[in-house]
């Protein structure tokens, strides 16, 4: 998921109010829709993206750090990803995940620019470790995503 939890709740509430409720003909159904708004607003106050979601991503980043540590030793490489410290809240983990993604992006740029100056076997191993990480990360994103409904969204029917 790429949008923030809070903004998604706000967008869903706004869409219900502006686009859906005015077009519902039944008083009971409109009431149910307002019930959905109420529950969404309640969730907004107490819920967040799950820490487990971020912890798996940070675990993958930490595994990449462990794989790269020996390979980049003695090289002028960018900083490696960091592990999570203790029990952290969802926003803290999200910030760490994003900071690590920035470090990994920097490593990719560095390898692209410095690759020819690095020992070939070492450069190949660094590249492979980065790809193992990226594929693990993307697989995790996919298995934690719902089945797309673009046909239904486009047609307005199941």
């Amino acid at each position: 998921m790429n949008n923030s939890f809070e903004r998604l709740i706000d967008g869903m509430v706004a869409t219900l109010r502006a686009e859906i409720i005015p077009k519902i003909g039944s008083e009971f159904a409109r009431g149910q829709a307002f019930g959905v708004i109420y529950m969404l607003n309640s969730m907004r106050l107490r819920a967040a993206w799950s820490t487990e979601f971020y912890l798996e991503q940070i675990a993958a980043q930490t595994a990449l750090r462990d794989a790269l540590a020996a390979l980049v030793e003695g090289l002028d490489a960018p900083a490696l990803p960091q592990a999570a410290s203790g029990s952290s809240s969802s926003p803290v983990l999200e910030a760490l995940r994003n900071a690590n993604e920035g470090r990994i992006s920097d490593l990719i740029v560095w390898l692209s620019e410095q690759g020819p100056q690095i020992d070939t076997d070492k450069a190949t191993a660094i590249d492979a470790a980065l790809h193992i990480y990226m594929n693990r990360h993307l697989k995790h994103e996919l298995v934690t995503s719902a089945k797309p409904m673009f046909a239904e969204i486009s047609a307005g029917a199941e």
Binding site: M1, N2, N3, S4, R7, L8, D10, G11, M12, A14, T15, A18, E19, M134, N135, L138, K139, E141, L142, S145, A146, P148, M149, F150, I153
Partner: peptide, 24 residues
Amino acid sequence: CFEDGQFNDLRMPAMGTQVAPVLR
């Protein structure tokens, strides 16, 4: 666009869920 509050159209965050499949 959705995050900045310019639209409340839920097709936009739905598109956002497709970043990972495209990168894959």
